[in-house]
Amino acid sequence: MNARDRILGKLRQHAPQTAKPLPDVGSWYATHRPLEAAAEKARRFRHFIELAHAEVHAVTAANWTETLHAVLKARAIDKLLVAEGTPHGDAALDALPPRGIECSVYDMAIEAWKSEMFNDTPAGLTAARAAIAETGTLILWPNALEPRLMSLVPPVHIVLLDSNKIYNTFFEAMSVEGWKNGLPTNSLLISGPSKTADIQQTLAYGAHGPKELIVLLQEGEA
């Protein structure tokens, strides 16, 4: 018998005879987390993510690349990693190089350019799939076009979020989107820049991930 069978055997031998009732998670949320209107959700999202030290800019579909440019200029950043083939990545590729910002793209496997990613990529732009108002949280599902390290390695992470995609809670997000039917390779909740309080409970930002998280909150008709 192998370890698997021995462990399962021991557990089976003593598992309770009767199942416990399935906890009703939905009704707890229905009772304790009222659904809010879009404006209220956006306000709540912004409040909490700013509390977690993120910077939020209200933008529109027409002007967001303008704001993106200003954000980079203000930090004297002249290079941005973008996701080619995504609408926001292509828009940045169109808008930024003419204004003096070099745009690099994630067009090959990380093994081929790890050093550049870690040492010569000051900022990355991604979109957020959605967000959560309750905690001020961005939801990202990295994919082949917009890989995982884009939101982790560059010291400045800029995220474009459509304000119509803000859910009240994490529970609502996963329920409405049917996550239980399948999750991607990696899915993420991000609620601020990287931080630590491991030295004498003193909060410090930029532990291992981005030192700054900048949200471009795109408002507009649903």
Binding site: G136, L189, I190, S191, P193, S194
Partner: peptide, 8 residues
Amino acid sequence: NISTYFNM
């Protein structure tokens, strides 16, 4: 209220 990252 939440951690910075929740990695699935």
